[in-house]
Design a binder for these strands. Sequence first.
DNA 1: CGGTACGTTGAGTCATATCAACCATAGTGG
DNA 2: CCACTATGGTTGATATGACTCAACGTACCG
Lengths: 241, 241
Amino acid sequence: MFCSQIMSANIQYNCGEDCHIRSSSIFKHLTNEDLDKLNFDKKSESYKRGTVLYHEGSRINGCYCIQKGIIKVYKTGVDGKEQIIRFAKHGDLIGFRSVLSKELACTTAKVLEDAFVCHIPAQTFIELIKNNGTFSLELLQLACRELGEANAYITDIAQKTVRERLAEILIHLKNEFGLDDHKILQISLTREELANIVGTATESVIRLLSEFKHDKLIDLNGRKIAVLNEAALIRIANLYE
Amino acid sequence: MFCSQIMSANIQYNCGEDCHIRSSSIFKHLTNEDLDKLNFDKKSESYKRGTVLYHEGSRINGCYCIQKGIIKVYKTGVDGKEQIIRFAKHGDLIGFRSVLSKELACTTAKVLEDAFVCHIPAQTFIELIKNNGTFSLELLQLACRELGEANAYITDIAQKTVRERLAEILIHLKNEFGLDDHKILQISLTREELANIVGTATESVIRLLSEFKHDKLIDLNGRKIAVLNEAALIRIANLYE
DNA sequence: CGGTACGTTGAGTCATATCAACCATAGTGG
DNA sequence: CCACTATGGTTGATATGACTCAACGTACCG
């Protein structure tokens, strides 16, 4: 099997029974037969920060299941400005959109935190969908959930101010990546990256973050952001009206 | 069968062989058996302008295949402002997102132009997915295409000016609904609705439309919008860079 | 004929973008 | 070891796109 790999951190990944593919919600209802096929066809690899898994506009020959690390998925807009669409982490599946719609990749996927990733060939993936109704239903549910989130984000960007959106993003990041003991957000982003999620200028993010810090909603220490007053941020973001 | 219905325009719809469900891309690979089941379970109905097919936040018990007319699909944002997510017309399928993700409807669907619509019960729909790999694959492809469009729109709204977005929307509407012999856009929207697609204020749309008219890019006559210079609009919109 | 919804225009304001300068840090190569 | 460069962060000044508010016009409808 292709699956034994050594991470830089010396963690051994055995991609048979223990592999994340098994416990990840999207794969968990596969039959043993399907699972064997999948484990045989997939390729696991580790990637350093900065590596690009696939480029916007390129043909894509499979999708990626993230075991470890963080991947930044973004589109390049007018005059090269990147718009971050999502982050993928532990258990997430990316690239399936382009595989299924048979279009060229409409996003770029770049490693933010050293990652360990399984690559599933397009053919294997499509066979799986055709032959396993439960699997395809779950995948559909995943796609539909993402679609719902995308629609919600469209509404937010179209209607909310930068200030509201920044507060909202901080809450989202907190929910997705969590805080450590010191309430520090467990994802490290540059100010520019934050701006590229919110859809604003770097300087605006900096000014608003200082404002939030001044109001004791957050604390700042370089890229470390501590979330001190979640309730107030939620109020600012107009979330859960 | 439930399927014989009379439209206000006195057009008879026979939903067996002739029904749109057969020719619509998403249903065209169904087996005769599946098709019989579908035709038996579905309910066709005509709706007047202004009718709501389903409300945001309500439970939804099936999805809708549009045979005729135009449906406006929108989310309600902060302080009640509507954000139009898409329009559905002849051959389009809506509501499947909420059916599959088993969440409450995250949008409202309202009739813009008198419509004739088939309702497919959730259970029938889900069975179809589970039992027919080709169908579920095509549905997945549909969802993925919509997801790609949503991501592109996020990037646009986040990065482009209102002027660019309005030009882009005019092009999109032209591609989706076409022009008549007088180059008039074949969908009738209020200025407010245009604003609610673009994500701006009604007054801004009015001012920009007059500007486009002054520059001979479009012509205006009430809600009738004639697209005179598509190339220039595309340039303004920064499309196809 | 009054009512309601939609469209238009002008004036003033404000949030946010843009531009420019500067600092801190870290890595690079001579 | 020290300039040198690149990258990221910060702040201030200025410009402006877009929103808001308000008034008014228009058209249709019962």
